[in-house]
């Protein structure tokens, strides 16, 4: 076939445009579905990762964030929210996604170091300046007349950590009696006037609405409140015993594969373990797992005796079933109250 010079020129121009287009930098969008108090952490981390990925591959990455109570967020992913990655408050919520949506394998927690938890945290008490109710430990908050702010364990991961920390404290104090622990936690919830669906909602209730004497808070959330509203407004009280909260992360394979983002989603979570990722975690009052970063930020955290969920409750699956599933201990306590 003979084409005219004009046709050849048009074809060459078109081919050049196609090649130029394919060689151009890609723009990738990820959705990170996370729990309530990680907003500030991921705003800073997303910018750092985008710069890292751009330098490494030349591609632009925009990470969108979605926040809410951890259980509620897991429900949304199960119902179809197209998350590339989830960074939730507890492993049980990601287990639920694996089990109910089949969106990632059951052994997802083995994919990244440290059981896929790149940082840890714990539960502390945030009280009003001067600590007018003289709250020092768990026993003080269940006294009559003390108003406690904590979210709903049915929807909030942080609330489940709060609940389990109180349970274990009471159990140890009463010779390992679950009945005593149950009675203690029942007293605790009698003092709760408002049940928000997530930790950030509870922060609003305590900090902005001025309700309650003590807020059972994620450690990083308590630090943020003090930082934002001033040390003349609030104080952090660290109880004698608390729980080691290990918020995990995972790639949602089903979505990432479909969207073609599996590689960048994996890299996004891996980078949390990098020096920069760990430093950002520390700066945002999470406890880094990397020894170097942990040492750098050790000074800002009060030393506290911590127990793990595996040690005290036999893991999340068991704890979830016994305490938080319908008809579990929480329902027995709260519905009775």
């Amino acid at each position: 076939m003979n084409f005219s010079p004009l046709s050849r020129l048009a074809a060459a121009t078109l081919a050049a445009l196609v090649l130029a287009g394919s060689a151009a930098a890609k723009s990738i969008e990820l959705l990170n579905v996370s729990y309530d108090p990680t907003r500030e952490l991921y705003v800073e981390y997303n910018a750092a990762f985008a710069a890292h990925w751009k330098a490494k591959t030349g591609d632009d990455v925009v990470v969108k964030q979605s926040h809410g109570g951890s259980g509620k967020q897991a429900r949304s992913v199960i119902d179809g929210l197209r998350a590339d990655v989830v960074t939730l408050a507890l492993a049980g919520d990601i287990d639920a996604i694996a089990k109910n949506a089949g969106a990632l394998p059951a052994d997802w927690q083995t994919r990244f170091p440290h059981n896929s938890s790149p940082y840890t945290s714990t539960i502390v008490f945030l009280v009003r300046k001067g600590n007018p109710k003289a709250i020092k430990d768990w026993d003080d908050i269940v006294k009559p007349g003390v108003s406690i702010i904590t979210p709903n364990p049915k929807t909030s991961g942080g609330a489940r950590w709060n609940y389990l920390a109180a349970w274990e404290y009471a159990k140890r104090k009463n010779g390992g009696s679950d009945e005593a622990a149950k009675a203690f936690v029942a007293k605790l919830y009698k003092n709760v006037p408002v049940l928000d669906s997530g930790a950030r909602g509870s922060t609003t209730t305590f900090v902005q609405r001025g309700i309650g004497d003590v807020f059972l808070s994620w450690e990083n959330e308590a630090f943020l409140a003090v930082k934002e509203f001033g040390a003349d407004q609030f104080e952090i009280v660290v109880p004698s015993l608390s729980i080691l909260a290990e918020p995990p992360v995972a790639v949602v394979d089903k979505v990432a594969k479909r969207k073609g983002t599996a590689e960048v989603a994996k890299a996004y979570l891996e980078y949390l373990y990098s020096d920069e990722g760990q430093d950002i975690a520390g700066k945002n009052f999470y406890r880094p797992i990397d020894p170097k970063a942990a040492a750098k930020y050790a000074g800002q955290f009060t030393k506290v005796e911590l127990f793990t969920i595996d040690q005290a409750f036999g893991g999340w699956t068991k704890a979830q079933k016994e305490h938080f599933d319908d008809g579990g201990y929480f329902d027995q306590i709260y519905l009775k109250n």
Binding site: S147, P193, V194, L195, T205, R209, G210, I211, G212
Partner: peptide
């Protein structure tokens, strides 16, 4: 004041729900 704040917040949460 606390009681009224609690009432107000619970109404707010109910509206959000």
């Amino acid at each position: 004041d606390q009681k009224l704040r609690v009432l107000e917040r619970n109404v707010e949460l109910k509206d959000e729900a």
